[in-house]
């Protein structure tokens, strides 16, 4: 079935785009490999897994073929805005240094901001959930400031902080911190009171109740907060990079658009999609490991 794809590829050799032949050859090779896999699938487990994916592979191939057809072959879509696939391959191969630098800068900013925000949010959430005094003082502040989108702080942050890098870290941390705080808090506040009763009759101290009862019981909620925070942090990262920081994938997007280098833009978008999806997957993996005791976890 997958072998049928082969038919789509070798007929795309004329046009003035660089890497066209390479793309065609790669696709052809891939198709042949997939075709062989389809035949070998009866015997090898890996190939059988591939076979399960074949409807998706076919759809992808059709999409690429259609894309190739309406851009490079027929020229139906206006050119600078909709480059053919080989143009994106060209960017990834020729401009990888700048892309890699962008990835590195973005990752550094995101990681620092996210971890600071998540840690601060977690600690704040636990204290509001646990201590009445902390709740009294922090809750109103949280209610008033929390719902404000972190990007609204942007002008102020770039003005107050010594560098645009530290300002962006603050914004990302803020965007991450709010959902983590609220969900950690609600997780801690919602713990079954019988858990505390039992631990108390077994001789648990306050410290034990917080660390060994309240926090583990709140973890499913905390992870919901971490997911929401991660999504928020992506949004703030890109905005901050577009408006202030002179590095990173967001800046690369902006820069590419400024030079009307649309292929570069698509390439950056593609890389970003891979990274964001990869990070979410990673967080899911961490959660699945930590919360393996839970029944019926959502698979990502």
């Amino acid at each position: 079935m997958v072998a049928a794809l082969t038919a789509f590829w070798p007929d795309k050799l004329e046009s003035d785009w660089a890497y066209t032949s390479d793309l065609a050859v790669t696709c052809g090779a891939l198709a042949v490999a997939l075709g062989l896999a389809a035949f070998a699938g009866v015997r090898f487990a890996v190939c059988q897994r591939l076979q399960r994916l074949s409807p998706w592979l076919l759809a992808l191939a059709l999409f690429l073929a259609a894309w190739e057809a309406v851009t490079a072959k027929l020229g139906l879509l206006p050119l600078p805005f909709f480059p053919p696939p080989q143009a994106i391959v060209e960017v990834v191969i020729d401009d990888w240094e700048r892309l890699a630098a962008g990835i590195f800068a973005s990752a550094r900013l995101l990681a620092t901001g996210y971890f600071l925000g998540a840690a601060a949010g977690f600690v704040t959430g636990v204290s509001i959930g646990w201590s009445r005094l902390a709740g009294y003082w922090i809750h109103p502040v949280l209610r008033f400031i929390g719902p404000l989108p972190a990007t609204a702080w942007l002008p102020l942050a770039f003005f107050v902080f010594p560098s645009s890098f530290s300002a962006s870290i603050f914004l990302i941390a803020l965007a991450t911190g709010f959902p983590v705080t609220v969900l950690t808090w609600s997780g801690v506040a919602g713990v079954n009171s019988a858990y505390y009763d039992i631990a108390r009759t077994l001789g648990a101290s306050q410290r034990f109740l917080v660390l060994k009862v309240a926090i583990p019981a709140a973890m499913p909620h905390v992870f919901v907060g971490l997911f929401m925070g991660l999504g928020n942090s992506f949004a703030v990262l890109v905005v901050a990079e577009m408006l202030g920081v002179r590095a990173g994938l967001g800046w690369y997007l902006q820069w590419a658009q400024g030079w009307a280098a649309y292929a570069n833009m698509y390439a950056a978008l593609l890389v970003m999609a891979f990274l964001c999806s990869g990070l979410i997957t990673l967080l899911f993996r961490v959660r699945d490991r930590l919360l393996s005791w839970q029944k019926g976890l959502v698979r990502w």
Binding site: I198, A199, T201, L202, K212, V213, P216, A217, W293, Q294
Partner: peptide, 27 residues
């Protein structure tokens, strides 16, 4: 003075072993 409630209320994130060990751990 230990209570056993109608609902077993085991801690779902702990294995049976570490549920049982809780009292010793807490002290």
């Amino acid at each position: 003075r230990v209570v056993v409630f109608q609902d077993p209320t085991l801690y779902p994130w702990r294995t049976v072993w570490s549920n049982v060990a809780l009292g010793l751990e807490a002290r």
